Structure formats: C-alpha cells, structure tokens
Amino acid sequence: MDLHGKNILVIEDDQHIFSLIKMMLKPYNVNLVFKADGESGLKEALSQDYDLILLDIMLPRKDGWEICREIKNSGKETAIIMLTAKAEETDKVLGLEIGADDYVTKPFSPRLLIARIKAVLRRFENTRNNSNEKLDYSEIALKINPSNYSVEVQGEIVNLTPKEFELLSFLAQNEEQVFKREQLLDYIWGFENYSETRTIDEHVKRIRQKLAGAGLETIPLQTVWGVGYKFSTREQKKDD
C-alpha cells in the first residue's frame, strides 16, 4: 500500500502524540491535518474528504466514540483507526461496533502503527472496489445494496451498523463460501492478531436478530460448526 498523497486527519489532544505521528509519516509524503478537540475534529472530518482518520477516544468537547458514530452515520467513506490508552476488551468491542476499522492502544511503536495504517487502507480500498451491484435474494425477500449500505426485508429498511452491514455484504458477495472467524476479522477489521474472534459471533447474532425482527423467515447467515460462517439461502440450520 502506497501512502503517498493520502489525506490523513489526526484528532488527538496530545501534541506529543501528534508530533510522533507527524515524524513517522513524514517519509511517506502524506497530507496531514491535526485537530486537538472533538468538536473541531468532527467538523473537519465531515467537511473534507479524508482517506484515514486517526482518532483518540478521550478528547475534550466530544469523545472519540461519538465522533466515530457520527462520521459513519453521515455516510462518509473514511477509514478510522482509534488511538487510545484504553485497552479494556469492552472498549475495543465498542469502538468496532460503532464502525471503527481498527484499534491501536498507546503506547504504540511507529512500525506497528504504519503497518496498521497500510492494512486498513488496503482493506478499505479493496472493499470500495468490490461490486456495488444490488444483491437481490427474492426467494427470501432480502435485498442488499453495497452502494448505499442499505438492507431491505420485504421492502422495509433494516438498520444495521456499518460493520454489521460490511460483514453481511461481504458474506453475501461470497455466497456459499465458508470463512473462518479469523478470516472475517482480517477482511472486515484488518486485525493482525485474532484475540477478538467473539466480535464476529456478536455481530452475526445481532444481524440475525435484526433480520428476524424485520420479518425475514429464512436467515441466510449460517454457522458452519467448527469452522465459521457462510451466507446461504439453502439448507438452513436452526440458529443457536
């Protein structure tokens, strides 16, 4: 992944951290913008087009969770890596659930952060380059539209989070193919370690609940025991 010319926004209230990021990205000739509080950071993120946002969680005036949620809900196609000293598993899960593309805890090594930036941007571009053709499963009254992140059941919109949609869409675009949880973490979140595999199970559970709640009788997200998940409208198995 070539970082040359990439537009990156850093929303971080620690000037030292920004200086470190600026120094480590200098050889890559990126366009770097710095905002030191949540409100100005969100305004900048929504008013300009960025390839990537490096987002702290504990910020003055508006926290990183709310910023991430508002950016993703706005429809902006911007990759987000959350930078934080909060290393608890629940914080990581929350960040990923509201749409963050990766999560790096402080202190971090420059080499690690550069690797994660490249991985997220590469995966993000691959996702955007996937077919935007609407997926229509008329046999189960389900429609998936990658171009605008919408899902319809019997003509009614189902509200999925960005990551829920990306997971459902990815599996649907690879119908009948079985993916391990580790593979899904890599494709959707770009993790380099796989300690968060239960994130996949939680997302699948919520997607199933939302589809069923919307009246979908045949839930196409199938568990392949001992392996992972696949999207299939055939030979349905009872959810656990």
Rank of each mutant, 00 (worst) to 15 (best):
V158A: 02
T90F: 14
R111F: 13
T233A: 09
N148Y: 11
K26Q: 14
H16D: 15
L168G: 01
D51R: 05
K180M: 13
A100C: 13
M58A: 10
K205L: 13
L113S: 02
N7K: 15
G215N: 01
I117G: 01
P146D: 07
S131Q: 05
P146T: 07
V224T: 14
Q236F: 15
L168K: 06
K134W: 00
R181E: 10
D102V: 02
F18R: 06
C68K: 05
S169Q: 12
Y149S: 13
M23P: 04
D13S: 03
I81K: 04
G99E: 08
K62F: 10
Y149R: 14
Y28L: 04
L46C: 09
F124K: 14
Q173C: 11
G95W: 05
K43G: 09
F165T: 03
E88K: 14
I200S: 00
V30G: 04
E202H: 14
D37S: 09
I21Q: 01
T161W: 07
S47I: 04
R69S: 13
L135K: 08
A85L: 08
Y137S: 02
F170R: 04
V104C: 08
M82C: 04
S138D: 13
N145M: 08
R206D: 11
R123I: 06
T233G: 11
M24Q: 05
G5C: 08
E44W: 04
N73F: 13
T90V: 15
N174E: 03
I81F: 05
I67P: 00
D14C: 11
N129M: 12
S19Q: 14
L168E: 00
E164I: 07
W65K: 08
L55I: 06
E152P: 01
D14V: 12
N29V: 10
A100Y: 02
R206F: 11
T90C: 11
S74K: 05
F34D: 10
K230V: 03
R61I: 13
G99L: 03
D186I: 01
M24V: 06
E182Y: 03
F179P: 00
G41N: 04
E217Y: 08
V224L: 07
T223G: 01
Y137Q: 01
K106E: 11
I144Y: 00
M58W: 08
D240H: 13
I188E: 01
L94F: 10
D37P: 00
V204R: 01
V158L: 01
M1V: 12
V224A: 08
E125K: 15
P27M: 09
M24D: 04
L52C: 02
E89S: 14
V10E: 03
Q236P: 12
L94N: 09
M24F: 07
A79V: 04
P107H: 07
Y50E: 02
